[in-house]
Amino acid sequence: MAYTPVRRDRKAPPVRINLLSDTQTRPTPAMREAMARAEVGDEQVGDDPSTNLLCDRVAELMGKEAAVFLPSGTMCNVTATLVYCRPGDEILAHVSAHLIAREGGAHAALGGFQITPLQGADGKFTAETFRAALHPRTRYQPPQTLVSAEQTANIGGGTIWKKADLDEVVKIAKANGMATHMDGARLLNATVATGISARDMTAGWDSAWIDFSKGLGAPIGAVLAGTRDFIDQVWRWKQRLGGSMRQSGMCAAACTYALDHHVDRLAEDHANARALARGLAQIQGVEVQEPETNLVFFKPDGAGISANDMIAALNKRGVQIAVMDGRIRACTHLDVTSAMIEETIAHVREIVRKA
């Protein structure tokens, strides 16, 4: 079976409004300048000062002993599971989590791990659901080694795990000898929306990471944090998987710039998401999930048009957007303005009217 990479139709009109994902952000001119000025060295021998600075800052930000710069959030998740688990071990995560639904089966392919999907509303499982999934440690069942939570929950609607719920998951995991890993793809969206610091949000979790190539606007990179011993072991897998770099400081400098200039502004993305949701909700037949951060999920079925047909119609108008699990997902980010939000609402209203 051949696998074809997803490409945009080259015959489609130019994209003027890109709501496909916050991964579509492009480095700002100021970020590019910071990258050009970055002091660099060989990362593999610990000699890149810009990368070292970034890792130290993220470790401090999340209250962990150490951190490592990785090319992607997927590699953060993969290297973490490869450290924590052995072939045949069981990982517990929400059924819609990146580990299960968005990472190409990497954890099974590379580690031979079994991931048990946990059900729950809005991309989150409850403490009761987690506890009910635990089983006695016998030779008849796989060792339950790791539990993972995704903050924010992407397919759940960009929803935020409550601090109390995260703490309860940690408590249950530790009582049962399990490690805890937080997929922090949009962790800082959660901290900005709640006012809870990243250090407090990740307290008790053995490892956690921040993705810089989403709403923070860097062109590449994520940083995984945990104990020194854990990070040493992640480094071994980073090397094995080809994730070790040389003068990575140019990319790390973009991430440091994002920490200095792009964190607080995530609130603008959240405001734009709420404005989009309000406008869409006023269109008859469009069902909208109230956003908590920068993701807006909606269904136009009640207006007599399918999600795929809506996507096609929007693409013809220069609006790029995604279908995810039967719903349309719009993602706001630093390249999306309030004027673009109003224009998108107008396009949807007109498409529904014609339908």
Rank of each mutant, 00 (worst) to 15 (best):
Y3H: 12
R10L: 09
P13M: 12
P13S: 08
L19G: 11
T28I: 11
A34Q: 04
M35H: 13
V40R: 08
G46C: 10
S50G: 05
S50F: 05
T51D: 02
R57H: 02
K64S: 10
N77Q: 10
V78S: 01
A80P: 05
V83F: 03
D89E: 06
S96C: 09
H98C: 02
I100Y: 01
A101R: 11
A106V: 05
H107V: 15
G112S: 02
Q114M: 13
I115W: 10
L118F: 03
Q119T: 13
T126C: 04
R131D: 12
R131I: 07
A132G: 02
Q144R: 13
A149Y: 01
T152P: 15
G156P: 06
G156S: 07
K162S: 12
L166G: 12
L166P: 04
E168H: 12
I172M: 06
A173D: 08
V192K: 01
V192F: 00
I196W: 03
D200H: 08
G204S: 07
W209D: 14
L216H: 03
P219K: 09
D232L: 00
V234I: 10
R240K: 14
R246I: 06
A254D: 07
C255A: 12
A258M: 07
D260I: 01
D264E: 14
D269S: 15
A273C: 03
I283W: 00
V286Q: 06
P291Q: 01
A307P: 01
I311G: 03
I311V: 09
I321A: 05
C331P: 01
D335S: 13
V336A: 06
M340W: 08
R349G: 02
R353Q: 15
R353W: 14
